[in-house]
Simulated scan of single mutants.
Amino acid sequence: MKEHAFLARKLDVAAFAREGATLSGEWPALEFERVAEFAAPEAPASTWPPVQWTLTGERREPRGSEAQVWVSLEASAQVSLTCQRCLQPVREHLSMSRWYRFARTESEAAELDAESDDDVLVLSRSLDTLELVEDELLLSLPLVPRHEECPQPLLPPASVVTLEEASEDERPNPFAALAALKKDKG
């Protein structure tokens, strides 16, 4: 049996799974443009370590039904995002591991997706693994990136404290107005 030379950027998923092949590698973080958009300004994606990934194909033949195409993806990356407490860069480790089942058509994929918890994609003769890895990394980003303990103490800006104190001094005392009304009646 002839072994294929599979290309990660144009992967024939059916052949990849049929052979039970494995691909792995690393790509520079800058190639993941959508993830790089979340980079802290002080730590751009060009300073991040490369993204590691492994893809494994599998053909499953359940009893009484036709063969199924499955692919496993594992990826990990280290990104620097902006901490939402102190606004300084915070390094986040992203890691994911997921199996995908492939269906022949969009309608079959939608039906399988509704019936099970599996991730279902449409079978393609040219799957771009980089796009798949980037999609999963985007889903792995924390909603609110922050340090466990911020490196610098958080102090409220002086202008905020001054405004709060000034507004307290300017506010009239509601009871003083009531006392003035009582004096006018009496």
Rank of each mutant, 00 (worst) to 15 (best):
H147N: 07
T22H: 08
C86K: 03
L81H: 02
A36Q: 03
Q152W: 07
S76W: 06
A75N: 02
L141T: 15
L81N: 07
Y100N: 02
R98I: 10
Q52K: 09
E19A: 12
V79C: 06
H93E: 11
D128E: 04
R63Y: 03
E149L: 13
A15G: 12
F6D: 07
P172Q: 12
L132C: 00
L178H: 11
A15E: 10
V51G: 08
L73K: 08
R63W: 04
A103H: 09
M96I: 14
A103P: 09
V71H: 02
L30D: 06
T129W: 00
D12C: 12
G64E: 08
L11V: 10
E164G: 01
W99M: 10
W70K: 03
Q78D: 07
T22R: 12
L81C: 08
S46K: 12
S107Y: 03
S107M: 05
T54H: 08
E92R: 15
A176D: 10
F32K: 02
R91H: 05
A36K: 05
V160M: 03
A114L: 12
L11Q: 05
S116Y: 15
D119N: 15
S95R: 13
V69N: 12
L155Y: 12
E66C: 00
E74F: 04
L143D: 09
A166V: 05
W53G: 02
L178S: 03
E115H: 14
Y100I: 01
T105V: 15
V161G: 01
K10I: 12
L130P: 00
L139E: 10
R60I: 15
V133L: 05
L181F: 11
L81A: 06
Q52G: 08
V133M: 02
P153C: 01
Q84K: 05
L143Y: 08
V161W: 00
